[in-house]
Structure formats: C-alpha cells, structure tokens
Amino acid sequence: MQLVLDAVSYRYGSAAEDQYAIRELSFRLDSGDFCGIIGHSGSGKSTLIQLMAALIHPSSGRVLLDGLDLALPKHRTKLFTRIGVAFQYPEAQLFAPTVFEDIAFAARNAQLASADIERRVRHWMSVIGLDYDRYAHRSPFELSGGEQRRVALAGILVVEPELLILDEPTAGLDPAGRRRLLQVIDNYHDQGHTVVMVSHSMEDIAQVTNRILVLKDGYQYLQGSPQEIFSHHVELHEINLGVPASESLAASLRELGIPLPASLLSVDQLADAIAELRAQPSGSQRVGRSVNTRMEV
C-alpha cells in the first residue's frame, strides 16, 4: 500500500473567501508506516485525515492510493475495506442493538460469508478484551465509555483495513484504558498494517509512531522521525506544541550545562542517560558551565 498526497490543497467556504484548511501538502505514506500527525486546533489535522480517506477531495492536487486517483469514484470501490477511519469519540457512532451486530456491520457490507463474519467478530472482541459469550449479545450502550470505544474500533478493524486512521483515539480514556487501546493499535501496526494517528498527547505520539507530520495553518511545518521532531523544541513551542515531559526536563538540564544526548523521549531513556553520564569519571564530564542549583522549571 502506498498513499501519496501530491500538492494537495483544500479550500472551504466560497472561492472568493479563499480560506484553506490544507495548503500545498505533499506527503507519502508507505506500507508499515506509523505516522503521527500533530498540530494545534485548527491546523488542518482533521481535514487531512478526511482527505487521506477520500471522504472529501482536494480543491487542487491529488490523493493517490497505489497510483490511483481517489477523486474518481471507480477508484473508491470498497475503499472502506482498505482504509479504516476512527473519528474522534467513535463510540458516538455505535448504533446496532448488539455488540455483535455493531462490529459485524462493515464485514456484512463487505459481503463476507457469515461464518467468516462470526470468526472475525470473535477474534476482534478477544483482541479488544471483551469476552464474546458475555458481551456479544448485549447492547453496546450498556457498556462503559472505554468499552464502547473499543467496540467502535473493533467495528473498523473487522475488515482489516491496510491503512488505519485514528483521530484522537485515546481522548477521554483513563490511563489504563489509554494504555490498552494504544497496545491494540500498536499490535495492529506490528502485524504489518499502516497507521496514521492524530493526537494531542506528545507522550502517546512519542511512544508508538515512527514518523511525525507537524501541521501549522494547513501547511507542513515539520516532518521526520520522533527523535528529529522532538529535538525542535523552539519550533514546536512557537506553534504551541510541547515535547514529551522527559525531553522537556532533559532540555532544561542541557541548558544548565549537563551534556545529555538529544531527544530523550521516555522516562527510561532519560534515567538511563543520566545514569550513564553519572557513571563517567568526573574529569570527563564536559559540564558546560558552573551549575546553579536554584533554578526554575
């Protein structure tokens, strides 16, 4: 699978108003990518994922899936079996009388055999951690918010899309629910699928993605690996984005002259780097300047 955005712009409102949600964006997504999209509210993230899923079409430029222009209806046949999209708060779209029927819906639309559908629903319910016998024939509306979120995700994964697009998948979940959902998504990626995830959580983004696209006012602002992106403190700060907490502390320690390596994106990476530095003979510590121990964060 390869998804190419070729100089894509998306204009909203009338032509005279000339307002763009996405401007001249070129971007390529390859099989096996796990791409994070970040940018503050209004930067074009949600528009971009709708363009990627061919739910809306560019005002100019093209979106190509394996070379085929998705603006043409004939190239969108059964596209939902290839590209799955989980919008924000996907549980708001649950509708069926039972969990089984809700998860099975896309599989039925894909005209899969009923034995296959049941096998798939069982499989995905076990992946998301809902016991089939206990939950399959209950109403999804009796479940907790976290469980509903997972049912909604299973309803997308049931046709095993090659490309899974998620808009703020963990918003509003408690920490355990968030970890669990990220694990499901991470495993799906590990099985060779391509994933795009929009998130406000830099911790989540740093934890699971292997490349990041930063949007600002509909433009591509930065693009690169998490290590590259989160070394751009100043640029990210300028557009009101943060870096993971460990890197934020590491940056202020570097500023005080402690020569920590760049881009320490997790607590463990930071603790390891501090321990390693501390283990070096003190003469070899290249402390830049005398350290003032009274400082602000």
């Binding site: 002259g257 402690i258 603790a271 501090i274 964060v297």
Partner: peptide, 29 residues
C-alpha cells in the same frame, strides 16, 4: 526510574526538587 538505576531519591519529591537533585550530581565540586 532513577531509584531503579541505584540513585537515592527521597519519597514524594516534586519535579523542581528532583531537577535540583539531578543538577547536584553534576555540579563541579
């Protein structure tokens, strides 16, 4: 994580105090 690396860290330490402590390990004597 730092305790696991063998550093002695007081319980329920704030981020500011933790940062100060880390700095003290690297201050030039």
């Amino acid at each position: 994580a730092l305790s696991a690396q063998g550093f002695a860290i007081p319980e329920s330490i704030s981020l500011d105090d933790l940062k100060e402590l880390i700095c003290s390990w690297f201050s030039m004597q």
